[in-house]
Every structure is written in structure tokens, then in C-alpha cells.
Design a protein around this nucleic acid. Structure first.
Lengths: 187, 187
DNA sequence: TGTTCTTGACAAACAGTGTTCGTTAGCTAT
DNA sequence: ATAGCTAACGAACACTGTTTGTCAAGAACA
């Protein structure tokens, strides 16, 4: 996905780049199509597997992994307003799970939006932390590590803690969102 | 920011593109520098203005507006691991606010990360909804509006509700995050 | 059968992009 | 005076998405 271009797609199809414009209006549209195709892989656990909360978490984790598996795809999820059939399917499933948790439908609508936005953003962050630019990461760690204890006591006290946790941090964030959504009625 | 290129920057400085590489290693590095400079505009409310919660929300809203004011900048915030002085300042301020709310420092570290990630993602979403591609938005609205009531009853029942709320939705999401963070201890 | 009309396909060109290379000018230190 | 270093710059490389004009095949209609 990162490094995908119309010319490469065309070459793989043994044709020229301009020929693709018959089927696709735009590069962005191609991106959206690829995204929705990948979203077809997202598995939503069946009804009898655990309670709604763990099923919701499993579905979102599956969504996150599908995005993370293709470098650059998470950015696409943040750059387009997805409306493909697989995205509709997933949205409907998440709405259903939240309603099983006793949530009103209008609040569930905003909650699904929030959960998907966060999961996409998290996948994107994980994505561009890997490989891409080890230099920037090391520079950031140094910049935050060697900070004056007087001016920034909290950051100094935390140290490397600011970059800790990969999977556990995602799990925690998901719990934060679900708890928050349950405890915050819509205005 | 969208449409910013090394050549245009160089032209504005009456020089060639290659000359910029003396001061900047990369386009990404230039982006990071621009981001941190803009982050200097973020206002963090003084100690005596209201309680910690409303001050936290005001600071994050200021961060969000600073990103949204420049098209494309929110994407930059999601694509880099920011480590400039202004970002350090903001992080320290947010950590302090959360600690005033009685939160342990290690939980506050993850909370700040989550709050900033969400706010950046929200700004990015708002950003590419505007102007950019009205076609995609209308297509999404049509795709979700004309969905079969049998296969996707929840989405059908919601209708245009899925795209409602701009400012109120952000305020709600912020409350969700703060409530969630307060109610979810670190593992 | 002959003639339009439409659709898919493609090469070439346009207007850009980030980045690298080789070379110059100016300013110190030795 | 010589050497070394830094900033600067033009040109080129290897790409990118998109538009334009042209061409062939098939369908619809007379």
C-alpha cells in the first residue's frame, strides 16, 4: 500500500496507467476499494462466543490487525470516508454488539464512530513506528529522556515509560473507550 | 501544508530546492518542524481558570484547532513521532493537569498519549471531510442511506444520524475519554 | 448491409514530486 | 598561502497522478 502507484498496478496487469481510469476515477478511489476488500477479512465472533464486551474487543482487534498487516493501509482508513459493503457490514455488527450491551442506538452510532476512529489511528501510529524511521524514534526518545528535571518534572520522572507497552496499551485504551462510552450519555 | 513542497519553500526563499538540505535532512523533518512551530500557538489555560477538567478540555481543544487551522497538518501529527520543544511543553502541561485530577503518573502517561492521539485523529477526520472531496462524502451518505432494512436494520434506522454532530460530537468524545481514563486503572 | 454511437484501451505528454551528485564561492584556521 | 569546511546551487534522476488525443471493436439503429 505504501509505494502503491497506478503505474505499478497497471504494469502488474500488463497495461498502461491511463487504462485504469476506465474503472477507477481516482487514486483515492482505488485506495478506498483496496481498503474495503481488506476489510472483508475482518472476523466478527459468533453470537455464542463470550459476552458482548469481549466480542466487541475481538472484532476491533481483528479490524486493527487487518489494517496493520498492510503497511500504509491504516493511513488510508483515516484519509477516506469508507462506505464499501464490508465497512457497512462491520458497522452494523458493531452497532448490534453495543445494543446487546444495553446502549441506546443513537449513542451507539457515535460510539462506533469513535471506536473505529481510535482503532484506525492506533494502527496508523503503530504502522509508522515500525521500520520506516528508526532515526525519528531514537531522536524522540533522546529528546524526552534528556529533559531538564526542573522545567519538566513529570516527563523526567517518567523517562522511558512514555514509550512502553505495545499490546497492553492497546487493550487498556480499548477498555478506556468502552468504559467511557458506557458512562457518558449523549448530550 | 497540503501542497507544501520543498521546491515551493525554496522558491519562497529565493533559492533552489537542493539548498534546503543543508538545514533539513528530509521532507518529514521539515513537516515535524512546521508542526512543532504551530504547536507553539496552543494555549494552556492558567491555574486559576476553572477546575482541572475544563482546563484539560480547553487545552486539547486549542491543540485541535491549531491542527485544523492548517489543512493537512493533522495528518502530519499522526505521521510523525513529535519531539519538538513545544510538544514537550504541551505534554508536561497535560500530565500536570491529569495529576491535579488525582491520577497516578504512569496512568497519566498513557492517558496523555491517548488524548493526543484521539484529538489528532479527530482533527484529521474533520480536515479531509472539508472541501477536499465532497463527492466521496455524498457517495458515503447515499451508500449508507439506501441500505436494505432487513440486512442492516440498525444502520437503516439511524439514517443521516450517522453523520450528525460536529462540535457536540467532539465534546462528547472528549468526555468519553476523560471518564474512561478515570475509571480504568492501568494493568 | 451500412452507419453512427459508445465503450474500453493505450501511448505520449504535462506538470509536478523528493532526493542525489558534482561543482562552485566564501570563510576560517593552520 | 594553503588547506579544510560549510553553505549554496544547477542539473539530473527516477518517480508520481492525471489529461489528451487517437484507435479499434462491438452494439444499436436505419
Amino acid at each position: 500500500m505504501a509505494g502503491l502507484s497506478l503505474r505499478k498496478v497497471a504494469a502488474a496487469l500488463d497495461t498502461g496507467a491511463a487504462s485504469l481510469y476506465v474503472y477507477v476515477a481516482n487514486l483515492d478511489e482505488l485506495h478506498a476499494l483496496v481498503l474495503d476488500r481488506v476489510l472483508g477479512e475482518v472476523v466478527t465472533p459468533p453470537q455464542q462466543d463470550g459476552d458482548w464486551r469481549s466480542r466487541l474487543k475481538a472484532a476491533l482487534r481483528s479490524y486493527s490487525e487487518a489494517l496493520y498487516a498492510r503497511p500504509g493501509l491504516a493511513q488510508v482508513a483515516l484519509s477516506t470516508i469508507p462506505s464499501g459493503p464490508n465497512m457497512v457490514e462491520l458497522t452494523e455488527c458493531l452497532l448490534d454488539l453495543l445494543q446487546q450491551g444495553g446502549m441506546e442506538l443513537d449513542r451507539a452510532a457515535w460510539a462506533v464512530d469513535l471506536l473505529l476512529l481510535h482503532t484506525s489511528a492506533f494502527a496508523a501510529e503503530r504502522d509508522n513506528r515500525r521500520g520506516d524511521d528508526k532515526v525519528a524514534l531514537r531522536r524522540a526518545q533522546e529528546a524526552l529522556g534528556s529533559v531538564s528535571p526542573e522545567k519538566h518534572p513529570h516527563i523526567h520522572a517518567l523517562g522511558a515509560e512514555l514509550f512502553s507497552g505495545e499490546q497492553s496499551r492497546y487493550d487498556w485504551a480499548l477498555d478506556v473507550l468502552i468504559n467511557g462510552v458506557l458512562n457518558t450519555p449523549r448530550p
